[in-house]
Design a protein around this nucleic acid. Structure first.
Length: 427
RNA sequence: GUGCCUAUGGUUUAGCGGUAGAACGACGGAUUGUGGUUCCGUUAGUCUGGGUUCAACUCCCAGUAGGCACCCCA
């Protein structure tokens, strides 16, 4: 009977992780984890499935609707593979918020699914670090989130000038929209257009605004805003919003970052908008400045209002989420990865050098493992030459030799593959 | 959801309307207990279905898969 041949490809947009790729991922994750722990953040995790409705409300049209992978559970409920962490962690916190001491500083490293067309830097399954601070309204929490995100990038030793952290504020944007008096329906469309500012020519940008049936005066105000190169400049151009609470907060944040020596990495950027509807304070994006990989590495912001979704009293929250692919592309494009040696330097290879040596070899392997060494034991009888060749190809730097000669003289040898030297050790 | 591009051993690829070639990898040998170099050998391939043709891996159509860009976003 002919068997049906199954495809050995992973599901579209989902990647297999070979040991080499996995090692790189672990390198990224371990850096993330180390930096987060150094800030006193605690690690958590939530289930990969959530009720679909928690995304529908606030995750934006694409992430929360079209790209949502939805299943119907046995109770008829619609379950979704999580496309982002923020609703889940807000759900988790809303359960415990009233009973634990504030602030709550949490991070997680988890996988997510968005059902979109895969392309460079974007898979249907991807991994993100999520860092959030709950329960602090203080600007200090915004500042800590920003220094944490900068330190997370700096942890990889990127070259100078390889990235920039761009800041904006939803309240500042709101005040701008109030100033130009756009109605509610226009707001969302306008946000999209503002987001496009850098990709459009001034003429096209203006054309889009005209398409929204905005008047010349309104358009001029918006352009004044968008072309501001700093907070000072903005105040100068639009004195009407100089007292905006968003602007004042940004100023405070900027000056704090300056004092901490982070000034060279940070800028105010009017075109940072962020697609998620739940942001209502500081918003920011970390940009890769490499000419061939000019993209946002990650972004985040403040989302104080989101907890209301779960019936909880609203609590303050601020956070961000770097992705594994964007981080990898950043490191690749700047050549940071070439200098890395991700091989397991702590590993030993112990070949099986004769049929009669099975039990002795296993015993030795166990003994060395008990001493804390990593031992890869050979599972087929092989010759010494082949064993060394194998170790060489696999990049294992030390080989333990136990043949009949060694057994007779009650020793084993450890050969260092880089120096070629051997060391005899009593059994 | 829209547009463009691609499909040849495990991987990277060459090629031609008439017998598919290479490199790398894997395995083995030269070297019966000491590796990396070198040399030799073995292994394995034209995505699927239809059409044009005496003849299709090659040309055409469809499907499928993948990539890139847009949308959006990590």
């Amino acid at each position: 009977m002919p068997k049906k041949i199954l495809s050995n490809q992973a599901v579209k947009g989902m990647a297999d992780w070979s040991p080499a790729e996995f090692a790189l991922r672990q390198y990224i994750f371990s850096n993330w984890r180390r930096v987060c722990l150094s800030y006193g953040f605690e690690e958590y995790l939530t289930p990969i499935l959530e009720n679909a409705e928690i995304y529908r409300a606030k995750s934006g049209e694409d992430v929360g609707q079209k790209e949502l992978m939805v299943f119907v559970g046995s109770g008829g409920r619609e379950l979704a593979l999580r496309p982002e962490m923020t609703p889940s962690v807000t759900r988790l916190i809303s359960k415990i918020y009233d009973t634990c001491s504030k602030p709550i500083k949490y991070f997680s490293i988890a996988n997510f699914v968005r059902n979109e067309r895969p392309q460079r830097g974007r898979n249907r399954e991807f991994w993100q670090l999520n860092c959030d601070i709950f329960g602090s309204e203080s600007t200090l929490s915004d500042i800590e989130i920003l220094t944490l995100s900068l330190d997370l990038v700096l942890a990889f030793n990127p070259p100078k000038g390889s990235f920039v952290l761009s800041l904006n504020h939803r309240r500042l944007l709101d005040d701008l929209l109030t100033l130009v008096k756009v109605n509610h329906d226009q707001k969302l469309v306008l946000a999209r257009i503002l987001d496009k500012y850098l990709k459009l020519s001034t003429a096209d940008f203006t054309q889009c605004l005209v398409g929204l049936s905005l008047k010349t005066e309104q358009i001029n105000t918006i352009i004044k805003f968008m072309t501001a190169i700093s907070l000072e400049d903005l105040k100068h151009r639009l004195p009407e919003i100089a007292e905006s609470r968003g602007l004042l907060e940004l100023e405070k944040i900027m000056s704090a970052l300056k004092k901490l020596g982070y000034q060279k990495y940070v800028e105010f950027k009017p075109s940072v908008i962020r697609g998620f509807d739940y942001y209502d304070g500081l918003i920011f994006e970390m940009f890769d400045l490499h000419p061939e990989n000019n993209r946002a590495m990650f972004g985040g912001g403040r989302y104080n209002g989101l907890a209301e979704l779960f019936g909880a009293r609203s609590f303050p929250a601020v956070g961000f989420a770097p992705g594994d692919e964007t981080t990898k592309l950043f490191l690749e494009s700047w050549g940071v990865l070439k200098k890395l040696d991700l091989s397991d330097t702590n590993k030993y290879y112990l070949p099986l050098l004769g049929f009669d040596l099975e039990s002795e070899t296993i015993k030795l392997a166990q003994k060395l493992r008990d001493q804390g060494l990593s031992i890869e034991m050979g599972l087929e009888v092989t010759k010494v030459g082949k064993a060394l060749e194998y170790a060489n190809k696999k990049g294992i730097t030390r080989v333990v030799i136990l043949g009949s000669d060694e057994l007779q003289s009650k020793v084993y040898k450890i050969k260092d593959m880089t120096s070629g030297r051997e060391k005899k050790i009593k059994l």
